[in-house]
């Protein structure tokens, strides 16, 4: 059995040429009519900006990125679910922001790379309508199979329902579990002994959690 050694010249070039994010958005909007792809700026030094796909055209845009775009983004590396609560969005956009901007939603973020050229990450996101009843998003599993288990996990922990997923059921928690634990408003079952350390809310929880002895003073 032989083991080939890489001789591909492009691997010698260490500069990772991430295409300009606005040009990517323009290219998708040109290729797919009515796609409405927006750029979400990331003010962080990492410089990883992302695209926001509209839910109706998300799968078509994704397929274009994978198969027909000049970048051949065939490797989906990471799928993340995020719970943006109203309070968090008020922190992000300011307390006086429009109610449109601070209405809470759930989000699914995808990181794409290419196996043929050192490009990446290209980040795109899809958002739900709200956090309560409009929680479905299109699934990217028909486009990249690596989304299969990761979207199941997001369904389990966040409650986002992915339309078009071949096998959507809980991944980490047991089937009869109710609730979505990674959401910010999830209340954990109260089953561990609070140890009173000098934090105000831990002391309160400890007093409420345990029955103090009827007599006999402190332990």
């Amino acid at each position: 059995m032989e083991h080939r050694l890489p001789a591909s010249p492009h691997m010698e070039n260490m500069s990772v040429n991430i295409p300009e994010i606005q040009s990517v958005a323009d290219a998708i909007n040109d290729a797919i009519a009515g796609a409405g792809v927006l750029v979400i700026e990331n003010e962080n030094p990492s410089g990883q900006h992302s695209l926001l796909f509209q839910n109706e055209h998300a799968v078509a845009c994704a397929r274009w990125l994978k198969q027909e775009s000049p970048w051949k983004l065939d490797y989906l590396s990471n799928v993340t679910g995020i719970d943006w609560t109203e309070d968090a969005l008020k922190v992000k956009f300011g307390k006086d922001a429009e109610p449109e901007e601070t209405r809470g939603f759930l989000e699914s973020v995808y990181h794409l790379y290419s196996m043929e050229a050192p490009i990446g990450p290209l980040v795109f996101r899809t958002r739900t309508g709200n956090r309560s009843d409009d929680v479905s998003l299109p699934s990217m599993t028909p486009v990249w199979r690596s989304a299969e288990l990761q979207e199941r996990e997001i369904f389990d922990l966040y409650g986002i329902h992915f339309k078009g997923h071949p096998d959507l059921r809980r991944l980490m928690m047991w089937d009869s579990f109710e609730g979505h634990p990674m959401r910010k408003d999830y209340v954990e079952p109260d089953d561990y002994e609070y140890e009173p350390t000098p934090h105000a809310d831990v002391l309160k929880k400890s007093a409420a959690h345990q029955n103090p002895p009827a007599k006999g003073g402190d332990q």
């Binding site: 345990q210 103090p212 402190d218 332990q219």
Partner: peptide, 24 residues
């Protein structure tokens, strides 16, 4: 058994019954 939010029963009271710890 795995219940709706937690195990049912969450603990076995005959085996595990610690003294409550309240420090001042």
């Amino acid at each position: 058994e795995c219940g709706v939010h937690d195990l049912q029963p969450p603990k076995n009271a005959k085996i595990w019954n610690p003294e409550p710890v309240i420090r001042g």
